[in-house]
Design a protein around this nucleic acid. Structure first.
Length: 396
DNA sequence: CCCGCAATAT
DNA sequence: TATATTGCGG
């Protein structure tokens, strides 16, 4: 297992893989003897694959490693194929290594790369496979850069999860932990997640002038640029985003991550229930930077609707508030509705009992994944379905 | 200005 | 279809 060709260990360990691989490929390309090339490639490939197996167990903690390895493997496989192919039927060239290199260099692009990962082992047509991959990456690059559109549309169609393009892709992405985790930014006070100045970690949310002035007059405006998934992370000029959005006219959909929703609910409780709490109050209690009254209002509207709908099935008083994520939140009017108001609207303590998941762990930090309430805390948008839509919709 | 509801957009 | 945004009256 631990055996790797000297070259491999030497080349790969110390430095950044991309470069090394590139170098390696160059070297290999200089070799005239085809079988020699093949064997060399093979050797490295083997080593890489073995490492990959080892890492596999930790892929959650070492997503980037996986990616790099995977990428390397794909690249080498590709080269290997080419090598063989060339031998038989001289056609392709080594533009491939170049491509690979490029990809590697931007290993930040997990989003697209991941696709690759899924089928890495498949013995399918490496060529096609590869091409596809490349194609995808490039497309994505352009898309993002050019569009600056946050690929909202795409995601939308794909997943049906509008707002959060970022999160969607996030499943795999390992960079931009800040946003991934919360889906929203909290004002410095309690935060463990520090907002990046100048950037708006806030979920894609762009506001119209209207919102700004109207809803949140005093908001500590953090410029809200949109952070789009990978694209953004890379290096897209913020200007583009704002422009685009402004032009679009319509605001980006705000994604209510579970944490965000929890905050919301928490505020609601403090205010005495959804029926009495007002958007502004809620927003203030939530202390979420960038959140507007309109957004809260909207969410509240939805919330009320859902809570109203609930059959109040003699909800066991203890249904611990909300269980998000896979757990599904339980919305019981009794709990958050007027009734709770009487019990104890601790409006005095702005501190939220709920802890913000700081766990960057999911992505890069070790250990992090303490999933409790967060359950899968995939940092996806909060899903109302869980509670509202219960079996047997007799209504209507 | 703020709130809530309804229409509309994605 | 579900959910977020916008419009509008109170």
């Amino acid at each position: 297992m631990g055996l790797v060709h000297p070259e491999l260990s030497l080349d790969f360990r110390p430095t950044f893989i991309p470069k090394t691989i590139t170098n390696f490929l160059k070297e290999v390309s200089l070799i005239g003897n085809v079988s020699d090339k093949a064997s060399k490639l093979d050797a490295i490939l083997k080593g890489l694959e073995e490492e990959m197996k080892k890492i596999d167990a930790f892929k959650r903690e070492l997503p980037l490693c996986m990616l790099l390895l995977n990428d390397a493997v794909v690249a080498l496989k590709e080269e290997s194929m080419q090598c063989i192919a060339r031998n038989v039927d001289p056609v392709l060239e080594e533009f491939i290594p170049l491509k690979n290199k490029k990809e590697n260099v931007q290993s930040e692009e997990e989003g697209s790369l991941i696709t690759t990962k899924k089928e890495q082992d498949s013995n399918k047509n490496c060529s096609n496979y590869k091409d596809k991959k490349n194609w995808m990456s490039s497309v994505q690059l352009w898309n993002t850069d050019d569009d600056g559109y946050c690929s909202t549309d795409h995601n939308l169609d794909t997943k049906g999860n509008y707002g959060d393009s970022c999160q969607d892709r996030g499943g795999t992405r390992a960079f931009m932990p800040f946003k991934a985790n919360l889906g929203f930014a909290v004002r410095k006070e309690e935060e463990k997640v520090i907002p990046i100045p100048g950037l708006s970690f806030l979920a894609p949310g762009i506001k119209n002038p209207r919102d700004e002035s109207g809803s949140t007059g005093s908001r500590t405006s953090c410029s809200r640029a949109i952070s789009c998934s990978e694209t953004n992370a890379r290096s897209v000029p913020l200007a583009m985003f704002s422009d685009q959005q402004q032009q679009t006219g319509r605001k980006q959909r705000r994604c209510w991550s579970p944490e965000l929703h929890r905050r919301f609910v928490n505020a609601l409780q403090q205010l005495g229930g959804s029926q009495v709490a007002t958007p502004k109050q809620i927003r203030e209690l939530m202390q979420v930077d960038g959140l507007t009254n309109d957004e809260v209002k909207s969410h509240l509207q939805k919330y009320r609707l859902h809570t109203r709908k609930l059959p109040v099935t003699t909800t066991p008083a203890n249904q611990s508030a909300f269980v998000l994520g896979s757990g599904h939140a339980c919305m019981s009017r009794d709990q958050y509705g007027e009734s709770s108001k009487g019990s104890s609207p601790q409006s005095g303590s702005p501190q939220c009992p709920l802890q913000l998941a700081t766990n960057t762990g999911g992505t890069s930090t070790t250990g992090g994944d303490s999933m409790e309430d967060d359950g899968d805390a995939k940092s996806e948008c909060y899903s109302w379905k869980s509670h509202s839509q219960k079996p047997g919709k007799t209504d209507v």
